[in-house]
């Protein structure tokens, strides 16, 4: 027999499915929602419902959006001739925080992962090639993670786009800002030295 009333047990069950939320945390959150005002609780429920009902993928860049094309693809003040290729929609937020990139994006929704059986067909690569072949692009920035899978994906895209007149670039890797060189591993240090620039 359940320790709580059925609706409360159901909410705890659903919350504990979220990443990073264990049974205890789910119980604490459920009681918080129970104690909240009706307005706040329904606002949370509506936000979750709207998330699934209103969001979809941008038909151009495959970013998650509520309008199509998305805010980056439809914004005339952004340079649509430069696109930054990222693995996941969440990567866009990291790049936008820098306020140093004013181009458009293309979201692959993953990386090539032979171990997990994810090949080029499972990624949004065809539409990237179509965008490049449309002829209005000047530069494609490959901003996949510097992991084995991210590097393999960048290498694959480079092979695919090499024959086109578009400039293909890769984001730099090396020592993070504020880090101590003493603690940098060999690969990171090697890349930092290779990617050095003249001051």
């Amino acid at each position: 027999m359940s320790r709580f009333a059925q609706p409360l047990t159901q909410l705890i069950d659903e919350l504990s499915k979220l990443p990073g939320i264990g049974r205890k945390s789910a119980q604490r959150l459920a009681f918080h929602i129970l104690r909240a005002t009706e307005q706040d609780a329904f606002a949370l429920a509506d936000a979750i419902r709207d998330l699934k009902a209103q969001l979809h993928l941008c038909s151009i860049c495959h970013n998650i959006t509520d309008v199509d094309p998305c805010q980056f693809c439809s914004n005339p003040s952004r340079n649509q001739a430069i696109i930054c290729v990222v693995e996941e929609p969440s990567n866009i937020a990291s790049i936008e925080r820098t306020k140093h990139f004013n181009g458009a994006y293309h979201v692959l929704h993953g990386t090539l992962s032979p171990l997990n059986g994810i090949g080029p067909d499972q990624l949004r690569i065809d539409s990237l090639v179509e965008r490049v072949q449309a002829g209005s692009l000047q530069e494609v920035i490959l901003a996949t993670n510097p992991t084995v899978e991210g590097e393999a994906t960048a290498g694959y895209l480079l092979q695919l786009l090499r024959g086109t007149p578009v400039r293909i670039t890769r984001i730099a890797t090396g020592i993070p800002a504020g880090a101590d060189i003493e603690y940098a591993d060999e690969v990171t240090m090697t890349r930092a030295m290779e990617g050095r620039r003249e001051l």
Binding site: L112, P114, E151, A152, G155, Y156, E186
Partner: peptide
Amino acid sequence: SPLALPIDYLRAATLG
């Protein structure tokens, strides 16, 4: 580290 050398799709599949 495998990242010390260039990586393409086939090398990633090989390591995998």
